[in-house]
Design a binder for these strands. Structure first.
Lengths: 120, 120
DNA sequence: ATCAACCTTAGACTATACTCTACTGTTGCT
DNA sequence: AGCAACAGTAGAGTATAGTCTAAGGTTGAT
């Protein structure tokens, strides 16, 4: 797949895909046998990663954190133990986010009550 | 209270408090009777707002969104109906965030399983 | 051969949310 | 009066995450 096809599949612009590539989140391959151009080719795993990136971004993970998770899953550079550590760390931060959201929900519900009862 | 006291109470730097003031989230009052200086004075409500700002930021609300919520609660410029609309809107976005987090949790748990079972 | 529609790179630009610096003035203690 | 510790403003600088432009090369259909 060339970049435009990946872009269409994921809804992420080619610009942004290149930005993610520069950031080390994904990696295209150049076809060595073709010498006339230097187009990058992407596989289905890349599409999968990009979908994960979108989801992870919307829950508030940074590019760096997302990179760690991708490495923990797709990469050989960590030991099993290290991978599990990274993933557990991210799970903990999700738990933390959940707690904060529940708190915030309570707070806003309180605001609402105050509005309804003209206490503000 | 002067700015440093507010900073100590909230753990937010004086710089950042001034930034929030410029952004319209809080508002200090100048003492008209004192002419030798132009120090801002802050009340307990401001401290309350700043604590809310910290919490709201950590669940991912932007300055603009936080400003809306503060206005919906402390300000006279919206009708009751408008206030409730704003607050409901934020509650919905919290629900959305929760859903996304639960999804992400599932995904990471799947990653973990794959790591444990050497599927990656 | 030409032309639209692709591809690449380098680098400039934007928005958000700070964070810091420089400079100046005020307060309160000794 | 001197001085540390505080206050204010303007504006520059930083980090993150894109977003866009310019300039050039390639592909594929006509």
């Amino acid at each position: 797949m060339l970049i435009n096809e990946v872009s269409k599949k994921t809804g992420i612009s080619a610009h942004t895909i290149r930005f993610y590539e520069k950031s080390g989140l994904i990696e295209g391959k150049r076809n060595e046998s073709v010498k006339s151009n230097n187009y990058y080719h992407y596989d289905d795993i890349t599409v999968e990663k990009l979908e994960f990136i979108s989801d992870a971004k919307s829950v508030g993970f940074t590019i760096r954190e997302i990179g760690q998770m991708i490495d923990a899953w797709y990469n050989k550079k960590y030991s099993k133990k290290q991978k599990l550590e990274i993933l557990d760390d991210k799970l903990n931060s999700l738990e933390q986010k959940m707690k904060e959201i529940r708190q915030m929900k309570k707070q806003i519900l309180q605001f609402k009550e105050d509005v309804v009862n003209d206490r503000c």
